[in-house]
């Protein structure tokens, strides 16, 4: 069986109010549902891997074939818990190690 390739996305939470980082993945998932339906959402394999509260960065994982779908769903999020919010994908990598290495040395949005 062919090995599933995955992508790790660093998503920056842009909000004036405090947001529970754990809710980000639920919001992105419901945004995926709204845009692509249950069939589409099932193909993304979306999971939350990590949340850096200090930096306000959430690391998500998805299948590499669904990267654009997840990016579109992230882009479509405009609020979490009724608070206006913007989510920006600041980096994408094939391994979590590389992603974290890259994040440590860059200016976040």
């Amino acid at each position: 069986m062919k090995r599933l390739r995955r992508r790790y996305l660093a998503v920056k939470i842009d909000c004036k109010d405090e947001i529970d980082g754990k809710k980000v993945v639920d919001t992105v998932l419901s945004s995926t549902l709204k845009l692509f339906g249950q069939y589409g959402a099932s193909k993304t394999g979306l999971t939350q891997i990590d949340y850096d509260e200090k930096k306000g960065v959430v690391i998500l994982r998805c299948f590499h074939t669904a990267l654009d779908m997840v990016r579109a769903a992230v882009c479509a999020v405009t609020e979490i818990d009724g608070k206006p919010v913007a989510l920006h994908v600041i980096d994408v990598s094939g391994s979590i190690k590389t992603l974290k290495k890259r994040l440590s040395g860059r200016k976040l949005v």
Binding site: D14, R71, C75, T78, A86, H88
Partner: peptide
């Protein structure tokens, strides 16, 4: 600012 997105997104 809430509606601004990265170009790749």
């Amino acid at each position: 600012l809430i509606y601004m997105r990265t170009p790749r997104d």
